[in-house]
Amino acid sequence: MTFNLKDFKSIDSGLSKERMDVFQEGLDAVSTLHLSKAFQGIKAVNDLSISFPLGLVTGLIGPNGSGKSTLINLLTGLLKPDAGSIVISGHAFSYIKPYKLRKFKMARTFQDARLVEQLSVEDNLLLGVAQNKIEKSLFELSTKAYRKKLEGVLIKTGLKEHRFKKAEELSYGLRKLLEIGRALMQDADIYIFDEPFTGLSPKMVDEVLSIIEILRLQAKTVILIEHNMGMIEKLSDYVIVLDHGTLLASGAPKDVLKDKLVKEAYLGV
């Protein structure tokens, strides 16, 4: 299912040529078809059919309990749908096995950074890219192949001086940066960031902003869950609004954020 260019009447002309090409093709990176998931009778995601456009930053917003986290967990295989299907880069599934995320070049972060606490920053970063074929992984003793990328990510995330520390020793903000770094290491095509700015110092916010900007320039698909509307407006090319597990609105940020229904949903909370 492709989305319509008409939704982007007032698109930001700051797109690079690369992104313009991708954007004009109008393909989806990820989409759902009648996706449903209920918990103890309550439908967290209710017959949802939406698309995340390829190569753009899509803001995923909605009041608390609207189903954003559930949706993301379904897309990344942490939850099994009750019904419906998920399409990633043209491949349809009723359920994605989480270990296939790497194959589909999808990387995500969590609201509260989910790290391997007793491993070092370096090891946490390498996890997403190190050899995962069991017979080869036993003989992969050197990290030389990942050195360059590792150094780059350590600088980008400001974690260079903490590289040998254990994840559990890091502050809240650094933990989030580490998780973002892990995603960057994977050089994915689709990034899902779950409230990446929450709890960060202003300096760290800038760092994350610049990371997302770079991903935009590289025409990567980014799905951004955020409560900060300013950030959404600043970063997103497209916005999807959920409420009670269904699609409330979607389109260009300027339009969606002014939408009466959207405002009601948020204020009503």
Binding site: G77, K97, Y99, R102, R108, L127, N132
Partner: peptide, 8 residues
């Protein structure tokens, strides 16, 4: 988490 990072 480990599974989601690509490990069976």
């Amino acid at each position: 988490l480990t599974v989601s990072l690509g490990y069976k």
